[in-house]
Simulated assay, not measured.
Amino acid sequence: MRRLMTTTLALATGCLLAGTTMAQSDEEQIEYRQAVLTVIGGNFGPMGDMAQGEIDYDAERFARNAQRVADLSRMGLEGFEGGPHSGDTDAKTAIWDEWEEFEQGMADFEAAARELAEATEGGEQDLSDIQGPFMQVAESCQACHDNYRDN
């Protein structure tokens, strides 16, 4: 619970700093995107645990988290605009060298997250019914991490 509150606070801070991305310092851009991606991970992680049978499946929680991931997916790209940014970051410079591909990957992630949220709407689905959309989101995350994250 403490981690969720810390992460939520970090995201809120990032949002306040967001204003206009063009006026942000490198540090603010990095903090913003890290906050958004941390909250995405904080919501996606339990869904992965449910999908892998590590924790009990809770359809309502899964749906709530899926909706949060979909909402946040629209914010991720903003934190990378105007880069590369100097500072404490695992982002590879390949993001900006291959901006159009990266941008398309983020759009694919957003579309997959939206499809997952729609598939889970109402929180009454069996886990087997949403495995496909869940895996699409997971694969889009993994592809970005493999190509554009330095760890």
Rank of each mutant, 00 (worst) to 15 (best):
D150V: 15
C144K: 11
I40M: 01
S25E: 02
A112M: 01
Q67S: 11
W99Y: 02
A35P: 05
K92N: 07
M75I: 12
D90A: 11
Q131V: 14
A138G: 15
E54M: 10
A91D: 02
I40P: 03
G45K: 02
L72S: 12
D88F: 14
D108A: 11
S140D: 09
Q34D: 09
A10W: 01
Y32K: 05
G19I: 06
D97H: 09
G83H: 01
A94L: 04
D71R: 07
Y148K: 02
D26H: 06
F134W: 06
E103P: 12
A94G: 09
N65K: 07
A35I: 01
D126M: 08
F109T: 04
T20D: 07
A94T: 15
A63V: 09
L16D: 15
L72A: 14
I130P: 01
T13G: 15
I40N: 00
A23Y: 05
G83Y: 00
P133Q: 04
Q131L: 10
L77C: 15
S86H: 11
T6P: 09
G87S: 00
D56V: 13
R68H: 14
T93G: 10
A119K: 01
E31Q: 15
D126Q: 12
E101P: 15
D49C: 09
F80M: 01
E115Q: 13
I130T: 07
F44S: 00
Q24C: 08
D88S: 13
Q131E: 15
